[in-house]
């Protein structure tokens, strides 16, 4: 039976009637049209479906949507402010960290969670933080470069 659920998705409150067995990834993609969140393996191993729940990287393919009631959910669509890209998005573009782009939303969100709590990570810390996100195109090299560059540019922005 459908239940009413309230979420804050990308800063906006929304109310939905959802079945208990619906996954968060379904609600985001099918109900809210936020198709930036991707499904790739379905068993929590690839990280493509990663969203931030209260800032914490979470697998939306293994999360019944009702369990996220009342939470702040950030998807890839919530990072840019209007047309102004988030520094991590910009760095991913500038550093060639995006190829097919299907793992990119999850990667960027994992990176955001890292930089939000550790603005100045080492290369190794970046790798650890992204170790739950698989990529088949890039060999990860430019992804790590991009996250480190984003950290630097965010640091500069903050000190200005």
């Amino acid at each position: 039976m459908k239940q009413i659920a309230n979420f804050i998705v990308n800063g906006k409150a929304c109310e939905l009637a959802i079945e208990p067995h619906m996954l968060l990834v379904e609600v985001l993609r099918d109900e809210l049209g936020l198709t930036g969140t991707k499904q790739s393996c379905g068993i929590g191993h690839c990280g493509a479906c990663t969203v931030l729940i209260d800032g914490i990287p979470t697998l939306s393919c293994l999360t019944p949507a009702l369990t996220a009631r009342g939470k702040n959910i950030t998807t890839i669509e919530g990072l840019a402010e209007g047309t102004r890209l988030h520094p991590i998005q910009k760095a991913f573009i500038d550093y060639g960290a995006i190829q097919c782009g299907y793992c990119t939303p999850g990667m960027i969100l994992s990176a955001k969670a890292l930089l939000d709590r550790n603005p100045n990570p080492s290369r190794e810390q970046v790798k650890q933080a992204l170790s739950g996100n698989l990529c088949r195109c890039t060999g990860y090299v430019k992804i790590v470069d991009a996250v480190l560059a984003a950290a630097e540019s965010m640091g500069k922005e903050a000190s200005e």
């Binding site: 990287p57 170790s131 739950g132 996100n133």
Partner: peptide
Amino acid sequence: VGTPQVRNM
């Protein structure tokens, strides 16, 4: 255990 996301959940 698992990946960062799995450890978070």
